[in-house]
Write a protein that binds this DNA or RNA. Structure first.
Lengths: 227, 227
DNA sequence: TTCCACATGTAAAGGGTTACATGATTGA
DNA sequence: TCAATCATGTAACCCTTTACATGTGGAA
């Protein structure tokens, strides 16, 4: 349902073609949403049929014609209603965290490889966001004006940067922890051997808690220090 | 595609019925995934048809029969292949951040209300995770053993806690910023008035950058300090 | 006596992804 | 000459959500 509002929201800021909208989704909006061109075009058609947006054809030289959409009064009302009335609680689907949860099933070297790869991926995302942030700040300074629109976009950008930074930090901490507790995977080298009924006691190494007490207590320190 | 692996992964740890699986999704797995019972049951059937899991019926007193599923050798292989070969890059869909991006369209009081509500929501999630974390630490201490499985589950839990904490902090910072820059919304009180072609220059208040320079520079400070 | 937890499902509708289809221009 | 960018779309498939359907036992 949210592609509808993402599109209306975007067109509440600027007029745009389907292709332009895709670029926005790929740019700053990638911090909170993603979609495909093949989903945008039918959605635009639907929105136009409902009179929430309208279009005009712009012929271009050398390039294919452009279909520029703009939001209508009805569209603006629908958008405002959604902003005022619906309280979206983001439903998280983090496939990497899901893999992490099951990573005791593969050899410890592979675990470390995966965590390092994720860290790299996150660092790339962070770099892109930093560049966006720099550009934004410079354009604000240049034009020497501030609007509510720029303010909210900046807030979203900051959230994105913080999230990536923290993900990277978590990767590093988890890598250290796994490296420290490597031997827990020892008996798991033959990870393709048959499973048994009592999975808990077989196929894994358990060590007395005292050996890792300090590291784990530190790792769980967050429980104690209140926000 | 990932419900498949979430299910296989879960059954690689314990045997479970569809109902049990739903409870796990609602519990610790809620940090990284969510689903409905009506999706779990067909998925279990599909997995059984492909011989990746097998089931046995457990008659119960007073309660309906239980269908307990366990992973097969084929299932374990499929799971390991996914863990070793696929590098999941989480595709973010954060509907609240999306709303935030468009919040310049509604009155500033409504903006503050929304941010405060999100903060409250996030705090509730954090409290639940803290309780989970406490329970986990106590059970580790009690049993006095450590396994790779517990380690990875703890890492995921920590990530969840950090994320909620940071989201709360971001809400607070953004509330302060919006309160400081309230006047940017001033001319936007009549937010149901007709739109115009040149959206950028109308319907919004712009102020010289210098007035908020300090606050914004601080807000953008993250660009400068490297990870 | 009403609601919640336990327990398993089906059906329909809606949303999202991948593959297919076309075609011009520009830069490497 | 090959790939990428600009530009618009359709079709098939897959995944996800909401609504429907049924029934028991225990607690408030």
């Amino acid at each position: 349902m949210s592609l509808r509002y993402a599109t209306l929201g975007l067109l509440s800021k600027w007029e745009a073609s389907g292709y332009d909208i895709k670029k926005e989704f790929h740019d700053i909006m990638s911090i909170f949403w993603h979609t495909h061109l093949s989903q945008i075009y039918p959605e635009l058609k639907k929105l136009e049929n409902e009179n929430l947006i309208s279009s005009k054809l712009i012929p271009q030289m050398g390039k294919p014609d452009k279909k520029i959409y703009s939001i209508t009064e009805d569209g603006r009302e629908v958008l405002l209603k959604w902003l005022l009335e619906s309280n979206e609680i983001p439903k998280i689907k983090d496939s990497f965290l899901m893999q992490t949860f099951f990573l005791d099933n593969i050899p410890v070297d592979e675990v470390l490889l995966k965590l390092n790869m994720q860290k790299k991926e996150r660092r790339q995302r962070l770099e892109i966001m930093k560049i966006m942030s720099k550009e934004k700040l410079e354009s604000i300074k240049e034009r020497n004006v501030m609007t509510a629109r720029i303010l909210m976009a900046s807030a979203v950008l900051r959230r994105g940067i913080e999230q990536e930074k923290q993900y990277i930090k978590w990767c590093e901490e988890t890598i250290s922890l796994v490296e420290y507790c490597k031997y827990l995977w020892e008996k798991n080298d033959d990870y393709l051997t048959p499973s048994t009924e009592n999975v808990e006691s077989q196929n894994t190494t358990s060590i007395p808690f005292t050996e890792v007490e300090d590291v784990l207590l530190k790792y769980f320190a967050d429980i104690v220090d209140e926000v």
